[in-house]
């Protein structure tokens, strides 16, 4: 089970609303490399994972991703407060606004809604862990792109924290892959799936 803690993992305090930035950053809520996809990827993959330590890493990273989902939600909420109709129209936020007002909804910046088709839970140890490594790197690249497009220090501060966490998660999944390989038959990593073949 999970228990909620009524605090953000890292502070989000944005003084200046900016719907244009919200349009970009929403991709880390529901886009292809976003936080909810990351969380669901790890929390589903962990169930069939045969190695206890790797289950632990998937569980704890998957849990932290939910805290990141909350941080991105806070960023979006604070960027879209007190908007005038004119700001909504001029910023391009109108296409989100028409469907969701200023409610928080997981979509990509392109407008495509979140879908589980964005990730895999293959039930294959090497396939899943390699996907996880790629996922962390792709999320880091998205945060890099956000930092290229956003120059508000309040926003960048929280985004830089999230970017740094992608790097740590990449390192832990590299550990997970090593742990899995240490447990697998080294003569034939690729002809055998220890999550299914007994």
């Amino acid at each position: 089970m999970w228990q909620y803690e009524k605090k953000l993992q890292y502070p989000v305090k944005i003084k200046n609303p900016n719907p244009k930035y919200a349009n970009i950053i929403v991709s880390q809520l529901g886009g292809p490399d976003g936080e909810i996809g990351a969380s669901l990827r790890y929390l589903t993959q962990r169930i069939a994972m045969p190695y206890d330590k790797v289950v632990g890493i998937l569980t704890d990273v998957g849990t932290e991703e939910l805290a990141h989902f909350e941080m991105i939600s806070a960023i979006l909420y604070q960027l879209t407060r007190n908007l005038s109709y004119d700001e909504i129209k001029r910023s391009g936020f109108d296409t989100y606004f028409v469907d969701h007002t200023t409610g928080i909804y997981p979509v990509a910046a392109s407008g495509y809604p979140y879908t589980a088709a964005q990730f895999q839970s293959k039930g294959d140890v090497l396939a899943d862990l390699n996907e996880d490594l790629a996922a962390e790197q792709k999320a880091r690249a998205t945060y890099d792109n956000i930092l290229r497009l956003v120059d508000d220090p309040d926003v960048c501060d929280a985004i830089k924290f999230l970017r740094a966490r992608e790097i740590i998660h990449y390192q832990r999944f590299a550990d997970a892959l090593r742990i899995a390989q240490d447990n697998m038959n080294e003569k034939n990593f690729y002809g055998y799936n220890p999550a299914f073949d007994k």
């Binding site: 605090k7 993992q9 330590k53 704890d60 932290e64 740590i168 998660h169 832990r172 742990i179």
Partner: peptide, 13 residues
């Protein structure tokens, strides 16, 4: 809390 969580992840591995 951050120190606890980051160290917890490290200890998993």
């Amino acid at each position: 809390s951050f120190m606890v969580y980051d160290t917890l992840l490290y200890l998993d591995a």
